[in-house]
Nucleic acid binder design. Structure first.
Lengths: 394, 394
DNA sequence: TGTGAGTTGGTTGTATGAACAAACTAATTG
DNA sequence: CAATTAGTTTGTTCATACAACCAACTCACA
């Protein structure tokens, strides 16, 4: 029991956080409902809520409907949407994706900034412009509260350890922006953020204890939710399933990796090479496939088969409740999912096929995953289950 | 925050457990030392300790040495070794392994019972004989407190879901022995228990947060420690790495699994077939290898190479602090470990090779892992870090 | 449409009890 | 002896529980 509380002060602090988490997860909610959910006396909840109100995190929204049996109307409590906001970025291949979110995770704005071929030195001012633009059109009390960056690489101890697609040139984003804006800055791998997104934004009833997102972009990586928590590994490299090697009797010097066969880059290159034509991109590949081009059909057929096997392997490795596929290619060719499902059930002839879902709009996923993590930091609710899904419509 | 405490009663209960865990982990220990470790007032610790003493879990061992600066001698506290004991079993291929442990995890007795080819119906009375024998020669107050079984198969919700090597014939061990002896009965997969063993018995300084044991027996399975806790997966099937499929361009109908190449059974069969001789067992294979038999050398050479790749894949999948190899074959041929290390570093040319260790006496490992889990249950310390390693010598 | 019994939400003041703190005893070193 | 440390006793503290209250609603009945 590492993270354990022992005395009344710590108990009090934790109970305040529990009340805040209740407000977050069930807003708009009344004091009496919190009292019931937490099994705390209603007077205790009132006292704890008042402490939160003094800090400005919460606000009263007005009165709700009374019970049909009569009785006083409840006062509805919610996260103070005018407290401040977070800025969340994703360094994509072509674009920087930018999202501004309030403390409830609602999307305040979303933009893409063209960044293809730019160096990090050229990208930094673009980010600053976005942050300052967001600040100018804002009316919250505390303005910017935190920043997150989705990184296509590996992170350890909130620092980039490997960045294959963008040379960071010794730029430390955390220090740079942390000192410039005096807010917490969080870096996280994009597959991990996609996993956090599925847990926090896409799982309304919070059923998922264990989930894996398989991210098929230029490489292949998995984001792991284990016991409701993001599992990063000892060095932030857990879920690097694209680097998996083949086992077999013909031992070769440089063994084949999964991503040599099954990443989006690998697929595009295979088609490109077989056609002996100019370099392709994803849109061209999708077009060829839709035009029933033989080569595209054949290569993507193998991709479907291999993806099914990757899912089998992920099942065996992690035994999750659900698997999410984060692949722009499959998103563009939705007919592939049933094919993957069929290939899967041919390999594992069981009556219970593991649930698998294709993540829609994967850029939102990583941005919202970053939002979920940095919001926890800002609210001092880092070890709490926060449900961003349930309160999106409200 | 699922497992969270909210009121003073729960806080009190948790603090009692924390004191018990301190006594367990640091016995013999004084009250004042517990007070310092837990940052609880010494009067509080005294009061909590008295509650535990009344229940009989702990006892005073006598006085320790006074500080060199003078002062009263401390009274040394420890787990009451005369409170009771646990019985822990492992259904091996040839033998049932039986261990009796006191509440501190000390080995009171160990035996193997011949069980090759016996049905579960024939095995049950053998187990009962062992339990009754242990009871007859015992002088503790409460006698048998719990039973654990290491299963070569998968377990979900404390029930066997898959048992490839022993037909369970609808026998429910938990009900059968639970009702017969009125104690908790725990079933767990043997690779998982080996992982628990490494965490609790073999990690004196409790450095390991994430560890994987790779169990290479008749099949291949992994036991996973993630964030200091055993990770079992949604259905108890996490770490079934032996079932992993090959990814590649030549898609075949029935894809190859890792354990088709790399399990002990696979190695023995390959050598056996290549020699066109009688069926072999592990001892014969070890003998051939030591006699420099060409076929054995070649097959085991490939095994070394594939094991290195499995370790690479496990690293990529789980990114643990350390990997443990639980393989009687490697245990019998210790010269293989440096070869595996070398093959590994050829594939991953990094200055930091992941620590890998061969578990000695793997039968003890699973039995002690079972002991660790059932002891937690008995002491009501299920979510606490217990360190069986540190206090083995005392 | 007016009234009051019943119900529910929320506040206030008091009681509880687990941890804390201080002052004690006990036993040691030098 | 003084200084120091271990542990106990006694009384204090304060976060939560509890009980009584107020506020405000529904609904049945007149």
């Amino acid at each position: 029991m590492a993270n354990t509380i022992r005395n009344r002060m710590q108990l009090h602090q934790q109970n305040i956080q529990s009340v805040l988490a209740q407000v977050f997860n069930h807003q708009p909610i009344s004091r009496i409902e919190i009292s019931r959910n937490l099994a705390l006396n209603k007077s205790t909840v009132s006292s704890l809520y008042n402490a939160l109100k003094e800090e400005g995190y919460v606000e009263e929204l007005g009165e709700g409907a009374a019970s049909t049996a009569g009785g006083r109307k409840p006062v509805l409590l919610a996260i103070n949407r005018r407290y401040g906001y977070t800025m969340n970025f994703d360094f994509g291949y072509r674009h920087i994706h930018v999202m501004k979110n309030n403390l409830s995770g609602d999307i305040m704005s979303y933009t893409q900034v063209d960044a293809k071929g730019l160096s990090i030195q050229e990208i930094l001012p673009l980010i600053e412009t976005q942050i300052e633009k967001a600040e100018n059109e804002d009316k919250t009390k505390h303005n910017l509260l935190g920043i997150s960056f989705a990184i296509h690489g590996t992170i350890d101890a909130n620092a980039i350890t490997y960045s294959p697609f963008l040379d960071m040139e010794d730029i430390d984003l955390v220090t740079y922006f942390g000192e410039k804006y005096d807010v917490p800055v969080l870096l996280e791998n994009e597959a991990n953020l996609a996993a956090v997104y599925e847990r926090d934004f896409n799982d309304e009833n919070q059923r998922l204890s264990n989930a894996v997102t398989i991210s098929i972009h230029r490489g292949i990586g998995a984001g792991l939710i284990i016991n409701k928590k993001l599992y990063r590994g000892a060095h932030g490299e857990a879920g690097e399933i694209g680097r998996s090697l083949r086992i077999g009797n013909n031992v070769v010097e440089t063994p084949h990796k999964v991503e040599d066969y099954c990443s989006e880059d690998a697929i595009i290159n295979q088609i490109s090479e077989a056609r002996k034509g100019a370099p392709l991109d994803r849109y061209a590949v999708v077009k060829l496939y839709n035009e029933n081009d033989d080569i595209a059909k054949q290569v993507i057929g193998t991709f479907v088969e291999n993806t099914a096997r990757i899912i089998v392997n992920v099942s065996n490795d992690y035994d999750p409740d659900e698997i999410f596929l984060n692949s722009p290619l499959i998103e563009s060719l939705p007919e592939l999912l049933p094919e993957i499902r069929e290939a899967y059930s041919k390999i594992v002839p069981s009556n219970t096929v593991i649930p698998m879902t294709v993540t829609r709009n994967s850029h939102y996923a990583t941005l919202l995953g970053g939002c979920a993590l940095i919001t926890r930091r800002v609210l001092n609710l880092e070890d709490f289950e926060l449900n961003f899904a349930a309160q999106q419509e409200f």
